[in-house]
Design a protein around this nucleic acid. Structure first.
Length: 245
RNA sequence: CCAUUUGACCA
């Protein structure tokens, strides 16, 4: 069974979905019970291939079987619905998961914030965030980032900065992505020199920049006509085996 | 010490 799970998962990742399904079927034919992981992998694969109807079918067959969907299963389904704009279905699933006594976890929350931020519903995003802040376990760093991103996209750059300053106060440590998000803020704000300082500063704090960091700053420099610096950064980037974009 | 599944940042 382990072998099958790995196989199916790998096939999904390589986007050889049909083969994954074949393997899945042959598993069933042999009387091997797929476990929840198997379903979850397959569901995620189906959504990546935009085959939501198949995913829904699979989800239903799972529930009619003797397996209980777990939080992961719901998360996959919910984000899948969101991606296809089926908001009502997604919220319906949320309710359902509550009634089954399953608690939304940080993945669920991040998905929620992400979605409302895409809908440019800043208020809703902040509400979700505050709800998490109060009720649940301390907000995940990803939730802060997602909210920051939402603020940026709505032009509230200063608030995004403020949120960043709050992060250490919540007992969270800014990670690479947090820095990347801030770099993005600074570039969009035309604070290029600050962005460059941050790029150096984050490294000094033991947080090595990744390809995203470089891409963000290089792009910012180019927009600000600081081509020379951009080129210099590009070279640094190549020295570190990052591929430019 | 290690099998597999879901969320975030540039483009």
């Amino acid at each position: 069974v382990c072998t099958y799970n790995i196989l199916i998962d790998r096939l999904c990742k390589v986007e050889k979905l049909n083969e994954a399904i074949e393997v899945f079927d042959s598993m069933v034919d042999r009387g091997i019970e797929p476990e929840l992981h198997t379903y979850n992998s397959l569901l995620a694969g189906l959504y990546k291939a935009n085959r939501s109807s198949d995913a829904i079918k699979l989800f239903k067959s799972l529930r009619h079987g003797n397996l209980q969907p777990d939080v992961v299963t719901y998360n996959v389904m919910i984000s899948g619905y969101f991606k296809h704009g089926e908001i009502e279905k997604a919220t319906e699933l949320l309710r359902e998961m509550n009634s089954e006594g399953l608690k939304p976890d940080k993945f669920t929350y991040t998905t929620l914030i992400h979605f409302v931020s895409q809908a440019r519903d800043l208020k809703a995003a902040q509400e979700v965030f505050e709800a998490i802040d109060k009720s649940g376990p301390s907000p995940d760093i990803l939730q802060c980032i997602t909210l920051m991103d939402c603020l940026i996209k709505n032009g509230k750059l200063e608030e995004a900065r403020k949120l960043f300053d709050d992060i250490p106060g919540k007992g969270l440590v800014p990670d690479v992505v947090t820095y990347n998000t801030m770099l993005d803020v600074l570039c969009k704000n035309k604070k290029l020199s600050e962005a460059k300082e941050w790029l150096i500063g984050m490294e000094a704090k033991g947080c090595s920049p990744n390809a995203f960091s470089f891409n963000t700053v290089i792009l910012g420099l180019l927009c600000g006509n600081e081509v020379e610096d951009a080129v210099r950064l590009l070279q640094t980037m190549l020295e570190r085996d990052f591929s430019p974009n």
